[in-house]
Design a protein around this nucleic acid. Structure first.
Lengths: 374, 374
DNA sequence: CGATTCTAGTCAGGGCTCTTGCCTGGAAAG
DNA sequence: CTTTCCAGGCAAGAGCCCTGACTAGAATCG
């Protein structure tokens, strides 16, 4: 059973991913293994083509003593693509195993988004990021501004909800640009992941309410985003809540009634909403009551420790106060606060996951390298 | 690193838990290890006092060949208590590592339940089951018919919800009867666990709606019951839904308005509800609409593959049909069906978990036995 | 009734990975 | 130039596992 050797190699790889470059002696101390073991593992991983002597040597002020050889992940272990697809544009980033962005490409999309155009834009930015990356992408992680089918990764149209990106199969579109799998999820779920990573102390159970052109919600339970059976968890457009006149109606109906949709669309006109909410306290209160009802349902069903509100108009303090007021009537209490990550939160979450998956793929390659010896 | 030896011992223990008694040769074949390794592991586990030669010998029709010695878990590796606490009574069962009930004690409670009386009953049945069990209980798993605080295990009173059992701290009450930890959770969550275990093919994402004196809901996501930050996930009494006249109101208000509560209590009078629902189609439809609204919220937020309805009046087919009709108006679809486990579902779930925790405790003891050698 | 057959369990030898202890190489400090 | 100090390699030994051969003992067969 070479299980113990595999865990040693994994620890060496993970430690190098965390510290970028280390000598064998440093590895032995950090991991808590002996020097011969560290040396053996480094030799195996070098033979497997995963790490290499960087050529750098120690003695940079460490005092006397023999110089050590720094080892690091090889450049060509690969990168991972993080792709963000939204109605206003498409972004692709190639991230390395350290989580750093090595290449980036971006393209705007004319509105309304047409699927063929979006697919072409995704191909363009993916190809661009892939060619400019220092190593070919092994896998891709996609954030899309529409509901995602968990089994297939395709975008799903729900009745009366805005279809911001439209019919699209990111897995098929991106498969030619990567050698490994393509993972797809909703932008709100990725934003919640970014929020979870940013939280200190860690937040294991919370809800993320996204308020933008579309309305979405992500539920994090026991430290993970929970997607539900088909991936449609958190699709709150039809959740029944309190309407402007106190009547019960689906959340999306509230926006229709308040005249906040873009003409001929179920998407929210964010600019109009923000100016209307500033100008009209009653409208702001109506929004707060409607969203407070959504949060009441969230709290009753999922019991989050906090509700994080993000998105283009979710960070607005006046709206946040209205939401707090709209929720306050209920019997339960919960902290409602603005999201910490405001710049491209979904891409941030996708990027974190892309790096994490890339690291897992590299570790798996180390395990496979010895299983099928050359 | 004795990691590999620890996994060998664990596999031997787990295999014995599954097959009750095996010879060393059978262990080697079942686990896929060599005979000497199996023999070594058996010797270690025997020295640690976890397993023993049962005295039984093979050759029961196996043909010629040397007789083998059967080994099995020792009787005194311990049992686990599964305790069910509800308004009508208290049950304690001592289960062994095979999941079989070795002793059982039961006591009724006069209504309304008074905390001191409930605590006394819990002590009585726990002591009774513990003394009649073949080995002392190492741990306890408690199902209680009230919301449970996840951090402390105490029962929680929520406003306007029936407090069926009342102020009680099962951890403190049961600690004297066990040497290890006491785990407490809501009866609905345990019932959902029982349902998950009974489902074939496995159900990883579903919701369990419990309809009894109290109203509850459990959410299973990615194969686990999700309890939320404080353990109050699924407390749906205040979820806003459609009332009898089409007005929005909390679920508990629907029952108040329909006159289905026990006098002076927020608990539902099940007998009255069942006869009224049979006699009056409009009332049945009103119930169906209210519960359909709850399921719509469940589906929007958690996206279950199915909604399982259980509890004293949840299995009623006429009510189930009304619930299906009440939900059908929404944009999403989901299978709504009656629970498979109808006899003491919560205790069944708690019992499964008690056995599972006992097995984990025994395996942990094997790991610890060598860490601190005598 | 003895020889044969067949299986449970043990023993011996060897491989793998880990560890400790010792040695060598080589640059900086004094 | 000598001393100091650290990176790295080598050798020996321990622990766990495996294979293959051996022993023990009961059932079956001729």
């Amino acid at each position: 059973m070479d299980l113990v050797r595999a865990t040693t190699d994994e620890r060496v790889l993970r430690t190098l991913m965390e510290h970028r470059r280390l000598t064998r002696a440093e590895l032995a101390v950090l991991i808590g293994i002996s020097k011969p073991t560290a040396g053996e593992s480094v030799r195996r991983l070098t033979d497997a083509g995963l790490i290499a002597d960087t050529g750098e040597r120690t003695a940079g002020g460490r005092g006397r003593g023999r110089v050590g050889s720094y080892y690091a992940l090889r450049q060509d272990v690969g990168t991972a693509l993080a792709v963000g697809i939204g109605p206003e544009g498409v972004i692709a980033e190639a991230v390395d195993a350290y989580g750093e962005v090595a290449a980036r490409a971006e393209q705007e999309i004319s509105r309304p988004a047409r699927p063929a155009q979006v697919a072409a834009a995704v191909r363009t930015v993916a190809a661009d990021a892939a060619t400019r990356a220092p190593a070919p992408p092994r896998l891709a992680v996609v954030s899309a501004a529409d509901p995602v089918d968990r089994a297939t990764g395709r975008l799903v149209q729900l009745p009366d909800a805005p279809f911001l990106v439209g019919e699209l199969d990111p897995v098929t579109v991106l498969a030619p640009y990567v050698t490994g799998p393509v993972a797809v999820d909703n932008d709100v779920n990725w934003a919640a992941q970014a929020e979870r990573a940013a939280a200190n102390p860690p937040l294991a159970d919370f809800a993320y309410l996204y308020l933008g052109e579309g309305l979405g919600c992500a539920l994090v339970s026991d430290g993970e985003v929970r997607r539900g059976a088909t991936g449609l968890a958190g699709e709150i457009a039809h959740l029944v809540t309190t309407g402007p006149q106190g009547r019960a109606m689906p959340l999306t109906g509230v926006f229709a009634e308040l005249g906040l949709h873009r003409p001929g669309s179920a998407a929210i006109d964010v600019d109009r909403l923000l100016s209307a909410a500033t100008a009209s306290p009653p409208l702001r209160e109506a929004l707060g009551r409607a969203l407070g009802g959504v949060i009441a349902a969230l709290v009753a069903l999922a019991d989050p420790a906090a509700v994080v509100v993000g998105g283009p108009w979710g960070g607005n303090e006046a709206i946040l106060d209205a939401v707090r007021a709209g929720f306050a009537g209920g019997p339960r209490k919960v902290a409602i606060r603005a999201a910490a990550t405001t710049a491209l939160p979904a891409l941030t979450g996708a990027r974190l996951d892309a790096a994490s998956r890339l690291r897992a793929a590299i570790v798996a390659a180390a395990g496979a390298a010895h299983a099928i010896p050359s």
